[in-house]
Write a protein that binds this DNA or RNA. Structure first.
Length: 586
RNA sequence: GGGGGUGUAGCUCAGUUGGUUAGAGCGCGUGCCUGUCACGCACGAGGUCGCGGGUUCGAGCCCCGUCACUCCCGCCA
């Protein structure tokens, strides 16, 4: 028995009755009955009730205890009388009769209660994060985080992958997010960058011949935060050699959905993981990260409205716009106000309004139906698979805007009509992302994703096709409407790269300097490689059923990127700045 | 950079149409209580109503400005 404990606070049960034990932990609660005091002693593992009578020599000490004092208690494990058994905790059948107690440390009055799971202001929780972490929910979440990461590593190792650590102090990368820069002391005027991802390193590891690489890799991006986006986060980063797209999928599918199953805790995991093209998800779900739990599928009704009596849509279609139809199952009995609210929602998301028709028992109601002949109404009904009791909403815009808006309406209807099973996980791979995209500000063509990605159709496509129609071997894994993985096959043909970079507006010299390491390495026998990266924090967030990343990160920053506990960021001293050759502009 | 929400006791919140001394639960303090487990009972302390200005006989409440936190858009290959 060590000085502090023989058992933990979650360990003792009937089998220990009669034993003399030693426990250490925090005073979760004290219930003082005057001549009888109960202490709920808490540690990471659980809570054990300790009791003392006024006849005992230590009674006075126990009476002075306050919440969150740390104490060491020695005593006998005794059975609780049947009438006072606590079924809520595993140790509820026994209690410790205190024979000796020492106070290891004391606590001031708390800024918020640890033993009560009550809503607490975010900044207060973050300032006293170590107190917040003592609470049951965060203890549980951090435990899940550990187990998930442990499971990831084990599964990757079992598949024959090696984990390597890539540098944190590295070089800035020209494309992508804003970098965090670290000034160099030894090289005046030069800066390191923290990695947005180990992208180039992992490709170089494959050029180095390490066939299967993975890493639980820290990544840093200096972009505004969100509930599901923070400055620093972890990826399960993967790169493989001599593989095709399906090989990457096979690895992902034998790791990620399996981990979801492992931590499902009563929830279900759909074993079917469809591959859906980028074009198709936009058409059917109006987003590149569809929530497949939502059964609504968007349909294109442009042809039906062409030359129809519904003038607004007919003329819009004539001008090249499209009409998207979104079915709202079993909604015909919704009050007028429900339809009005959806109209307001439509305006919020930038639409002029939301047309709809309602299929009731005897008639078709709603603003669209009045101006449409029966044949067209039937066609729409058939198109959407609608029947009596359903309604259909219509969005009319140019293609991209219509898809996006219809996607938002689809999500809204899914929530409103309670169509989503919150206890289910549904995955899919979104494949065939575009290789190039039009920069909305400059109007020029640029890379859609990794500039070293492989395009479909090879050099031939690069030379002959309209760049914006070229697809990439680029894919995302999506779960319940959240992107949890992104990856692609890599280009390893330097000739093709030159052409691709030229289309994106880079001359060879620029590529050579900006991506010097990869560019040089590609001259020395690069293998075909592919990879992807899974968002570890997001996966833990989903498995913990939390809406915010801060709930699954040990010491998170706030929305403004400050660590309220450590007080970061903070001004540097004159000496530090001098050493770093930095002069502040005031 | 833009939009929404919130800000009242240590914590979570209520506060009516602008009207007396701003309330509740928890926590905290004191006392009582031998079977509680969110113990109970009694008493008590505790307030720059985020901050600044304005309207008014009178502002927690109305108006203007500002700050903090949070959610979203932009941004995030």
């Amino acid at each position: 028995m060590n000085k502090y404990r023989s058992h933990t606070c979650g360990q003792l049960n009937e089998t220990n009755i009669g034993q003399k034990v030693k426990l250490s932990g925090w005073v979760n609660r004290k219930r003082d009955h005057g001549n009888l005091v109960f202490i709920d002693l808490r540690d990471h593992y659980g809570i054990t009730q300790c009791v003392i009578q006024n006849s005992d020599k230590n009674f006075g000490v126990v009476e002075t205890l306050k919440p969150e004092y740390v104490v060491c208690i020695e005593g006998n494990v005794v059975a609780r009388d049947a009438s006072v058994i606590n079924d809520k905790i595993p140790t509820g059948k026994i209690e410790i009769v205190i024979e000796d107690i020492s106070i290891l440390s004391t606590s001031e009055t708390l800024p918020f209660q640890v033993s009560v799971e009550e809503k607490t202001a975010e900044d207060l929780r973050l300032k006293y994060r170590y107190l917040d972490l003592r609470r049951e929910k965060l203890q549980r979440n951090m435990k899940i985080r550990d187990l998930v990461i442990r499971s990831m590593r084990k599964r990757m190792w079992d598949l024959g992958f090696n984990e390597f650590q890539t540098p944190i102090l590295t070089s800035t990368s020209p494309e992508g997010a804003r970098d965090f820069l670290v000034p160099s002391r030894m090289h005046e005027g030069k800066f390191y960058a923290l990695p947005q991802a180990p992208q180039q390193y992992k490709q170089l590891s494959q050029i180095a011949g390490f066939d299967n690489y993975f890493q639980i890799a820290p990544c840093f991006r200096d972009e505004d935060t969100r509930a599901d986006r923070v400055f620093e986060f972890y990826q399960l980063d993967i790169e493989m050699s001599f593989v095709e797209q399906e090989d990457i999928f096979a690895v992902g599918e034998s790791v990620i959905p399996e981990i979801f199953k492992e931590f499902a805790n009563g929830r279900t995991v759909d074993p079917n993981i469809p591959r859906i093209s980028y074009d198709e998800v936009l058409e059917k779900y109006g987003t590149d990260k569809p929530d497949l739990r939502n059964p609504i599928i968007i349909k294109d009704a442009s042809e039906i409205f062409k030359d129809s009596g519904f003038g607004v849509f007919a003329s819009a279609v004539e001008k090249g716009q499209v009409v998207k139809a979104i079915i709202a199952p079993a909604s015909s009995d919704k009050p007028r106000s429900w339809f009005d609210k959806l109209g307001e929602f439509a305006i919020e998301i930038g639409l002029k309004g939301l047309a709809y028709m309602v299929f009731t028992e005897n008639e078709v109601k709603g603003p669209v139906a009045k101006n449409l002949d029966q044949e067209r109404i039937n066609k729409i009904k058939e198109l959407c698979g609608a029947s009596t009791g359903d309604s259909i909403f219509f969005v009319c815009e140019n293609l991209e805007a219509a898809q996006k808006a219809a996607g938002k309406v689809r999500i809204r209807l899914g929530e409103d009509l309670n169509l989503i099973d919150k206890n289910d996980f549904k995955f899919c791979w979104v494949v065939d992302f575009p290789f190039f995209e039009l920069d909305s500000e400059t109007g020029t063509v640029g890379f859609c994703h990794n500039p070293f990605g492989l395009n479909q159709g090879g050099i031939e496509a690069l030379k002959t096709q309209d760049p914006l129609t070229i697809k990439a071997y680029q894919y995302d894994m999506v779960c319940n409407g959240a992107e949890i993985c992104s990856g692609g096959l890599r280009n390893f043909d330097q000739e093709a790269m030159k052409i691709a970079f030229a289309i994106a507006g880079y001359d060879e010299e620029t590529v050579k300097t900006k991506f010097s390491a990869l560019w040089l390495a590609f001259q020395y026998g690069p293998p075909p490689t592919a990879g992807c990266a899974y968002g570890v924090d997001r996966i833990v967030m989903m498995l913990s059923d939390e809406p915010n990343l801060r709930e699954v990160i040990l010491f998170p920053i706030n929305q403004k990127g400050q660590d309220l506990m450590m007080n970061a960021p903070i001004e540097a001293t004159e000496k530090q700045l001098r050493e770093l050759h930095i002069k502040l502009r005031r």
